[in-house]
Amino acid sequence: CHAFAQVFLAAKTDHWCYVPELEKYEDECNLNNSVTFCQDIIKNQSIPSVKSSSQCGSGLVYSNCERYENLSYSMKTMKCNHGWKYDRSQYRSTVFQEFDLVCDRYYLGALSSSAYMAGLFIGSVGFGALSDKIGRLPALMLSALCMAIPGTACAFSPNIQAYSIFRVFVGASHMGMFMVSFVLATELVGPSKRMFVGAVREYYFAFGYMLLALLAYFIRYWWILQLCLSLPATIYLLYWWIIPESPRWLISMGKHDKAVAIIRKCAEVNKVTVPTCVYEELAEMAGDVKETHAGSYLDLLRLPNMRKKSLKLFYIWFTISLVYYGLSLNTSNLGGNDYLNAFVSGAVEVPAYTLSIFLPESPFGRRWSLALVLILAGVSCIFTLITPV
């Protein structure tokens, strides 16, 4: 939900200069006419027309950033000096409206989106290393707190700067929860089940995307929507008593006794018998503690073969993220219903994740499967350029 909440939290709406001198006339007009009709009358008297900057139109539209300097005697224009009025027919309140992210302040809207992406970067580096140091479960709990507290603070931000700072923490928590839970889930199963578990958990990312569209449809005030997305993260704190720590991590840290206890509990819950030799081997490992080398990001670039593969994967992941978030964060620009666009964008991921379970094990293998879907995505994006409107 948080990944694409900005689509609705900071939705851009039509806006024009607020002219207090005409407010009483608009109120009188609204008594006998529709709001849209009265707004058009007021705009015609106070707002100059400019050429449309939209690629889909070349006619005249009302200016968003200028008004007539003198309503009675002059056609000279000036910048909005009393703020703006917004079209609230669809969105009752957005960050865009709350902090006047229009005209000379337009770039600040992009800043809050960039802040979230910066948080993703910080979270991917920080929580990954942290989970290796303090454990998967503690890192997951810290991610939950980082989502709940700064996420809630976002709803009460006094200005766009504070909102953007809190979004950095929310972005970091998003990546922390996403990545740490992925590692924990795959480490709790055997090698034959890792791909299945890794793919199935992605369904819930798609479900969250669809849930966001439904919540945004019924909640038209941005700060209420932000609270509804952030407060439930506190439920994750209950996982401390539900989800076990990764036995693999415990073994790597030399905490064999705790790993054995978790393995016994898992065997009891799943009604299976663990061979005695497993426990004997762990006991031997506990008695023969060896100093292990702590891996680092530099290990991915140290050897020529690993460096070549890592750089390729870095580029692939960079490209996927750029295109994926670029498309998803612009669903409101597709035209039509914003909520339906977002819901469909989440829904189409379900068959994609299903395909990812079986395609790598097909005759194509992993490399060709990856290449084929990336080529398909690239060709599809190119065809959108020549698709008739």
Rank of each mutant, 00 (worst) to 15 (best):
S89T: 15
H15S: 14
K76S: 13
S114K: 00
G83K: 05
I41A: 14
Y86C: 04
D27W: 03
N33Y: 10
P20A: 00
T36P: 01
L101F: 11
D27A: 08
S89R: 11
E28T: 04
W16C: 08
S53I: 14
K51I: 15
C38P: 07
S74M: 12
G119F: 06
E28F: 04
L101I: 09
S89H: 10
S114H: 00
R88Y: 07
E66I: 05
M117C: 02
G119T: 01
K43V: 05
S54M: 09
S58P: 01
N81R: 04
I42A: 00
Y73D: 14
K24R: 06
C103D: 06
I41H: 06
S58F: 09
L60K: 12
C38R: 11
L31F: 02
A110V: 04
D40Y: 09
Y86G: 03
M75I: 11
M75R: 05
E28R: 08
C17P: 12
K51S: 13
I42M: 06
S74T: 06
K51D: 14
S49W: 08
Y18W: 06
C65W: 07
F96A: 04
P48G: 13
F96T: 01
N81D: 13
G83R: 05
E69V: 05
M117I: 03
Y68D: 01
M75P: 06
C56Q: 12
T77H: 03
E26A: 06
P20I: 00
S113F: 01
C80G: 07
E21R: 03
L71A: 09
S63V: 01
M78W: 00
Y116M: 08
Y62V: 03
Y73L: 13
K76L: 12
I47N: 02
E28Y: 04
A118W: 03
E26M: 10
E28A: 11
C65G: 10
A110H: 05
I47E: 03
V95R: 03
I47H: 06
Q90T: 14
R92V: 14
C17R: 07
Q55V: 14
Y25H: 04
N33I: 02
V19R: 00
V61K: 05
T77P: 11
L60Q: 12
I41M: 15
M75N: 11
M75A: 04
S93C: 09
L101R: 06
Y18R: 12
N32C: 07
D104W: 01
N30C: 08
G119W: 02
F96W: 07
C38L: 12
F99E: 11
G109I: 01
K85Q: 14
V95I: 15
V61F: 02
N33S: 15
S53H: 07
S74H: 08
I41F: 12
Y68R: 01
V61N: 01
S53N: 14
L101C: 13
